[in-house]
Computed example of a mutant assay.
Amino acid sequence: MSFTCPLCHAPLTRAEKSYVCPQGHRYDRAKEGYVNLLPVQHKRSRDPGDNAEMMQARRAFLDAGHYQPLRDALVGWIAGELGEGASVLDIGCGEGYYTAAFADVVAGRGGHTVGLDVSKSAIRAAARRYPQVSFCVASSHRLPFEAASQDLVIRIYAPCKGEELARVVKPGGWVVTVTPGPRHLMALKGLIYDEVRLHAPHTEALAGFTLRHAQSLEYEMRLTGQEAVALLQMTPFAWRAKPQVWETLAQQALFSCQTDFSIHCWQRDD
């Protein structure tokens, strides 16, 4: 799988320690093996995405296996649907927990997997741990890939413009999304909000794609206090949590919390 230049969109050629386009734009490969394709003019902040502390909390939580049923479900779908030589892109890959599992399946069939995230801290950690995967720092709204180059794009809670998905996915290719189901992490939200509301039902529509499969995945997690703190740190409503919420979670001997994932599989129209 080859990258394209985020400035002029021409194909990038890989040299020993960098990628370069015909216009002379050059992007060095970090010592960990990833490439940074996020020009400063495309950044919304100085250091976008999750910081190192957030990344480490997520890694500890995921390594404990609490989201493994979700990973297993996605890996099972990939094993059943993708053929030989597939190109797979994991958008918003974070520290690579899911990406590496996808790559294990795809590589066995002669394919290739790329993990993309806006966070340099997350991509650096992912590249160190999973050298079998190609990782890049890039914007999910400006995917650095040629048109019709991807057999599968996976989005786990990650934003991306529908136009970009339609551009990069091959005819007959797939987009798989994971979003919160209605009752996802209700016990955690109950500690933060006076009125706990269900997540809104999934209403996404992808122009140029047909929804082929949808499923819910629900189960209860039993967490230690520190695992519950790590989970809260992973969520978008962590900034709403008051100090006493963090303290209460940290002191829990056992914290039960339900998951509710919505998985949707979209196929690109021919």
Rank of each mutant, 00 (worst) to 15 (best):
L191D: 07
A122S: 15
Y27T: 09
P39D: 13
I156W: 00
A241V: 10
H141A: 10
Q233S: 14
Y130M: 12
G85I: 03
P131E: 07
G172M: 06
F209D: 01
P201K: 15
R197C: 10
A205K: 11
F255Q: 13
R128S: 14
E227W: 11
A138E: 13
Y67G: 00
P11L: 14
P6Q: 14
G190K: 07
D90H: 04
P11C: 14
Q132S: 13
M234E: 04
Y98L: 11
C21E: 06
Q41Y: 12
A30M: 09
R129Y: 11
R129D: 11
A15Q: 15
N51K: 13
T13S: 15
V196S: 07
P144N: 08
L198K: 08
R222H: 07
A107T: 12
S216F: 13
M54Q: 10
D50W: 03
Q68F: 00
A253G: 09
A207S: 05
W266Q: 08
S140R: 07
A15S: 13
V118I: 15
R58V: 07
Q258Y: 05
F237I: 04
A79D: 10
D47L: 03
S140Y: 09
M234L: 09
V176T: 02
L206T: 07
A126V: 11
P11A: 15
C136R: 08
E163F: 02
W174H: 06
V106K: 13
L254T: 15
H141T: 12
V35E: 01
F3R: 14
H112Y: 13
E195P: 03
R44M: 14
A205N: 08
G110E: 07
V118N: 06
G108E: 12
